[in-house]
Nucleic acid binder design. Structure first.
Lengths: 114, 114
DNA sequence: TTAACGTACAACCACATGGTTGTAGATTTG
DNA sequence: CAAATCTACAACCATGTGGTTGTACGTTAA
C-alpha cells in the first residue's frame, strides 16, 4: 500500500499560509462565523491593509474564499483545504508506519529463519 | 467539549518548516532512513551549506534531531512533531464541527458582548 | 447629495529567507 | 604524516514577507 504525497506547489502555499499566528487566528474566526474583511481587521492591532494581505495569502492557499455582499467582502472558510493539509501530514505518518512495518516484517522473517 | 489550539510559537516554526518543498523532501528521506547531512545534500541541486540551513529549520521546529557519529552528523526524524502538526489541523476541523453546537453559539454571543 | 464606510492597490520600509562562497576545525583514510 | 571528508559558521546578495501610509473608487446611510 503506497502513499503518494500531494503535489509540491499546493503544499507550499498551504503551509506558508498556516505559518503565521494572525492568519491562523483569522482562519479560526472565519470557521466560527463568516465575517467581512473590515470586521476581521477590528480584532487585530494592525492596519486594514495588513489584514487584507493576510486574507489574500489564505485565499492563495484556497483556505478561504471571498464573496461580495453590498460594499463588504465576506470571507468564508474552505474546509476541504484544511482537510487536504491534514491528510498531507497523515501521509507522512503513514510513510513512517510503512518503514516500521517493513522493518518489523524483516526482523520477524529473520527470526523465523527465512 | 472545547478544543484548545496549541501555543502559537510552536505552530509558527512547524508550519514554516513544512512550507518548503526541499525541507519536506528531506523529511521524507529521513523518515525512510536516517542520513548524514552530506548524504542528504548530494540529492539536491544546491550547496551543502544550503541543505545545512534547511536541516536547521527542521531542527528548530523539532521535526528532526541531529546526532554525531564520527565526523558525520546524522539526521533523525521526530515523529511526535509530525503528529503534533496533524493534531493541530484536526483541531481546526473540530472547531468547524463545534460551530453548529449550542455551546459555540453561546460563546459567539459572549464574544460579541451580548 | 454629501458623508461615511469598505475595499483595492500602489509605494515604501525593515527584516527574514534561501541561496551563494569562503574559511576553519574535527575526524577518517591512504 | 598528508590528504580527503564532514561539519560549522560568517559574510554577502537577491528576493520575499509583514507591516505601514496614501489614494481612488464603489456602496450605503443621513
Amino acid at each position: 500500500m503506497v502513499v503518494d504525497l500531494p503535489r509540491e506547489g499546493e503544499a507550499d502555499a498551504l503551509f506558508h499560509a498556516l505559518a503565521d499566528a494572525t492568519r491562523r487566528d483569522i482562519l479560526t474566526r472565519v470557521i466560527t462565523a463568516e465575517q467581512s474583511v473590515s470586521a476581521l481587521a477590528r480584532h487585530y492591532p494592525m492596519s486594514f491593509a495588513a489584514v487584507q494581505k493576510h486574507v489574500t495569502v489564505l485565499e492563495r492557499a484556497a483556505l478561504v474564499t471571498k464573496h461580495k455582499r453590498g460594499r463588504e467582502q465576506v470571507v468564508h472558510v474552505n474546509l476541504d483545504a484544511v482537510r487536504r493539509a491534514t491528510r498531507l501530514l497523515d501521509a507522512y505518518e503513514q510513510l513512517w508506519r510503512q518503514r516500521t512495518t517493513a522493518i518489523d516484517r524483516i526482523l520477524k522473517e529473520d527470526r523465523e529463519g527465512k
